[in-house]
Design a protein around this nucleic acid. Sequence first.
DNA 1: ACGATAGGCAAGTGTTCAGTTGCATGTCAA
DNA 2: TTGACATGCAACTGAACACTTGCCTATCGT
Lengths: 106, 106
Amino acid sequence: MADVFKALADPTRRTILDELTDRDEQTLFEICSRLINKHGLSSSRQAISQHLEILESAGLVRTRREGRYKFHRIDTTPLDAIVTRWRPSSTTETGTGPDSVPPGNS
Amino acid sequence: MADVFKALADPTRRTILDELTDRDEQTLFEICSRLINKHGLSSSRQAISQHLEILESAGLVRTRREGRYKFHRIDTTPLDAIVTRWRPSSTTETGTGPDSVPPGNS
DNA sequence: ACGATAGGCAAGTGTTCAGTTGCATGTCAA
DNA sequence: TTGACATGCAACTGAACACTTGCCTATCGT
């Protein structure tokens, strides 16, 4: 699975996730149309397709094939690990090291 | 305030946040030393300094000047908006649009 | 079968970004 | 004041990235 953070780094990809949050199970052309009309973006179909590939390889978008249509839906489960990663551990860090020890190089 | 997502896109910056989570209120040199020793990264001091600037402009790191030392501490409050952004809205989206309407271009 | 629609593949281009290099500023101890 | 320490500023370089261009495959309706 590719980098979730790098997938979220691009504003266009975040807008795609916004669109999929607003309306799930959309095709590529549908997403393209709504990005242009609703969000004022001027991206080509190929650009959106590449963005969807990146989002899918990051686990943020899951696809479903049906005939010549390919439906995309958002999957927010990879986002949970982002916040939990930098939660402070229960070990009292700020209490152990007093401020009077500036350069504590290891 | 700069882009929080782009600040998180770089692996080195995420490791810096890991370090600040493990031990708060560190100076620039202290962070450099621990990144090299603990995390096996070979980044120069200037590179880390630029990373800290980006993290600070994104609101993820707050600084405190004291003489010639500048202490850095992590601030995880901008992370909360990431998960809440793509929470499905209470309006029943999947129920309104049946799956039998494939190309619903606006 | 034929045309139209939906999507995929791959090479090429311009920009953004991470990292380096070199020097400058400011602080502290002796 | 002198030297060592901690950090800041700015230009340059190389690589990653977003986007385009052009063509190809597959599915559906008539």
